[in-house]
Write a protein that binds this DNA or RNA. Structure first.
Length: 215
DNA sequence: CCAAGGATTGGC
DNA sequence: CCAATCCTTGGA
């Protein structure tokens, strides 16, 4: 019967709100291999996610939600499946997906992806990824990712038993998050970064480690 | 109001 | 290693 899959809803394998209403590290891991589609006016921009990080809850010192629902972070306290876009270092945008139950602030930072269609420059690194997809705060912050403009989808073939998710091609590597060292030892020790390797598009100081072997 | 610093990036 | 560049936050 159609529409019986647990985490993935009907249609062309699009990820719906229930997929995101779970802990951030779990969502981050399962987003690996999924396609992110931005219908940018008449232009279709598509990538395949290869790196994502979870920022999990009120006690995660590295999370923007750590200091409570400040004006910027308030969106993380809202419903899941919504885009959280912020400006970093005055010049780059970063795209997150709000996860977890409402009131349980968490999000997944999309750090790197493989370019598939319509990308503007490099998709390696969160700032570059947003630029390549033409994601901006004024246009996309707070946008429902279940809508027609910006959404995730994955292949329906080869669904993993019990999950409704297609197993991504490649190996999932789990590491500490990038640049959370200043947030304190506890946050730095969390292994909430997920990489789909091998990939030439992984960011971070260990990206060579996850790059494809030279032929 | 002011000062400090940032979930980054690219250049030296 | 370090500056760019401006928004966010917290404290006076």
């Amino acid at each position: 019967m159609a529409g019986a899959g647990p985490a993935v809803s009907s249609g062309a394998g699009r990820l719906e709100r229930d997929f995101f209403a779970r802990p951030a590290p779990l969502v981050a891991r399962e987003l690996l291999g999924a396609r992110l589609v931005h219908l940018d006016g008449g232009v279709r921009r598509v990538v395949r996610i290869v790196e994502a990080e979870g920022y999990h809850g009120r006690l995660d010192r590295a999370s923007h939600a750590f200091r409570g629902p400040t004006p910027r972070a308030a969106i993380m306290f809202g419903p899941p499946g919504v885009a959280y876009v912020y400006l970093i270092y005055g010049q780059y945008f970063c795209l997150n997906v709000v996860t977890g139950a409402p009131g349980e602030p968490s999000a997944v930072l999309l750090r790197a992806a493989e370019p598939l269609q319509g990308c503007l420059g490099s998709t390696r690194g969160p700032g570059n990824l947003c630029r390549a997809l033409a994601i901006t705060r004024d246009r996309h912050n707070g946008l429902d990712l279940g809508g027609a403009t910006l959404y995730f989808e994955r292949e329906r073939a080869g669904l993993a038993p019990g999950t409704g998710l297609a197993p991504p091609a490649g190996r999932i590597v789990i590491t500490p998050r990038v640049n959370v060292t200043p947030a304190g030892p506890r946050a730095a020790a969390r292994r909430w970064r997920f990489v789909l390797a091998p990939s030439a598009w992984v960011s971070g100081p260990d990206r060579r480690r996850h790059a494809p072997r030279p032929a």
